[in-house]
Every structure is written in structure tokens, then in C-alpha cells.
Computed example of a mutant assay.
Amino acid sequence: MVRAIAGLVGAAFVFVLALALFGTVRDRITTPPVESAAEYVEARNPLLQANLKSDGLTGTFDRRQVQRGFQVFKEVCSACHSIRLVAFRDLTQIGYTPAEVKAIASQWQIEQPSSNPDTGEAATRKNVPSDHFPLVFANDVAAKAANGGAVPPDLSDMVKARHGGASYVYRLVGHGYVKQSPELLKEFPDIATPTGLYYNRFYANLNIHMPPPLKSDGQVQYSDGTKPSVDQMAKDISAFLTWTAEPNLEARHAAGFAALLFILGFCVLAWGAYQNVWRDVKH
């Protein structure tokens, strides 16, 4: 009796699932989903790839490129965006000397919040290598007031937070700001960019508060002689933000390969032990 009841319950459960699946398939066939403006644009624009040296299972950082990316961040992005999870002393990992890091910290345009030791009133002090990069705005209210109601996101983990990672950043800042096509506006008249926003073909809803950060070639003058085209600067800032999001990438890759070699060696030893134990046993 119990088995019969259980079978009926199971059959009813399967029937409900099949009915739901049939309804979903029927709706997809009879009323296919309407293509959104973002899907329309994505289908007609190639998803450009940054192709950084850090990509893939064996990726490593090109430290010269990461340094160039830091220069782009310092001269372009740091006016609005912070990297609060990164300390100045971490820059030694990308090739800066301790003396250079000390100079960068002390000359950074935003100082650390502090207090007057005599009065206790709010004050500031120069950064030191052990400090994290200071916040650009004291709070979200100040950020919104300075940026037309939008809060510029912290960029420390931006590469990890966005689908596409470094290539997303590369596409967004280097190749996203273009003029809306007449075909797009004809197909989606409501997508016209409102005043105060900027059209970006690689942004989720196509209209973004951030003005084009990389406006023209030569905006940043690289000290290593690399030609500072918009495309190059976009790749370099993508490389830098890849490092801020995962500074231990190289160590993780090395540890992964060491673990694979250990497992491979263990398997060989286990196979050898098996052969030795059972060598005199007749099948």
C-alpha cells in the first residue's frame, strides 16, 4: 500500500514537471521573447578581447604593461574611482622600488583622513607606503553630488565583478563610446541617450553616467616610450585592474601546476605499488 501511494506521488510530481515544461516550450514557440536594445546591439558588435598576458591557465603579468595601466589609473581614473583594497606598498609587486612607492604615496593627490593631535578636529596627513589608497569621496552623498547622482564604483575588484573580466573593461573604456546608429534609434526609439548620460554600446543598458575617460590618443604620455593610443591605454588599464583584483594570480597558477604534478606522481607511485603487491597473484 505504501509503495503504491509513493508511486502515485512520484507520478503526479513527474506529470506536473512535464506540464510545466510543455507550457514553457509552447510559450517560447507561440510568443518568442522580444529582442531588447542591448541584445540588438550585442548581436551587431563583436565582443573585442583584451588578450592580456595574464589570460589563461599559464598567465603571468606583464609588469611594464601593469605599470602603464597604473599610470592611466593615476592620471585619468583616480579623479573619480578609488582602489581601496590596494595598499601603496603593494606596488612593489609590479616592479616599483620601495623608494618609488614612498614617493608615489607622499605625492598622491588625496591624503589620508586624520585628526589634529592637539584639538581632535578632522585633518589630513600625507600617505605612507603602508596606507591603502584613499577614497576619492568621503561618502556616497558626496560622490552623487559630484557625479550627477551616480556613485563611481570602487575598481579594486571590478575585473572580477563584471562578466567578461578584463575584456569587459577594455571594451567599455576603449571601444564603447560611439555614436548611436540610426538603425538602432529607428528600431528602439526609446533608447535615445538622455541628457547627462553617454551612449556606450558595451554597457548593460547602453546609457552610462561616466563620460568617455579615454578621449584621444596621447592622453597619457608613457615613460617607456609605448605609443599611447586609446586602444593601448584601454588594454593597459585592463591589465592593471586585473592585477588589483587578483595580485596573487601568478602564485595561484604556480601552486596549481605543483598540485597537478604531485597528483600525477602520486598516481604513478600508486600504480607501481599496485603492480608490486599483486605481481605474484595469478588471475
Rank of each mutant, 00 (worst) to 15 (best):
H175C: 02
I83N: 04
R68K: 07
E75H: 07
G10F: 11
Q180G: 12
L8V: 06
V25R: 14
A138C: 02
Q221C: 00
H163R: 12
F70M: 08
Q65P: 00
L47E: 11
V72P: 00
G164V: 10
C80L: 13
K74M: 02
A251T: 07
I5E: 05
G23Y: 11
A204H: 15
T92Q: 14
V72T: 06
F240Q: 04
K186E: 13
A50Y: 08
H253C: 10
D55E: 14
P46I: 06
K53Y: 01
G59N: 11
L21N: 10
V268N: 02
G272W: 07
E42G: 05
I263M: 13
A239Q: 01
L19C: 13
V72L: 03
V151P: 02
L197Q: 15
Q109V: 11
K102Y: 01
T60C: 05
T24Q: 07
A20R: 13
A150Q: 03
V16C: 02
A255G: 12
Q221P: 00
N200A: 05
G272Q: 12
M158R: 03
G225K: 01
T92R: 11
Y274S: 13
K160F: 12
R89P: 00
N276F: 15
V141W: 11
A12K: 06
C77W: 05
C267K: 09
P182E: 04
L206A: 03
A11Q: 05
T92E: 14
F202A: 01
A273Q: 10
P212T: 07
Q109L: 14
A254K: 14
H163Q: 08
T60Q: 09
C267P: 02
A192K: 15
R44M: 06
P46S: 05
V14W: 08
E246G: 04
R89A: 10
V86M: 08
C80R: 14
A18T: 09
S216T: 04
P189H: 00
V9I: 13
V128N: 01
D231K: 07
K179Q: 15
A270F: 14
A123C: 03
V159F: 05
Y168E: 08
V281Q: 06
P129M: 04
T92H: 08
G265S: 12
A122L: 13
D90K: 09
L8C: 06
L184N: 10
Y199F: 14
S114D: 12
V128M: 08
F88C: 06
K102G: 03
A254E: 05
L19Q: 12
W271G: 07
P211H: 10
A138D: 09
T119H: 04
F15Y: 06
A20C: 08
G218D: 03
F13H: 11
E183C: 02
H163L: 06
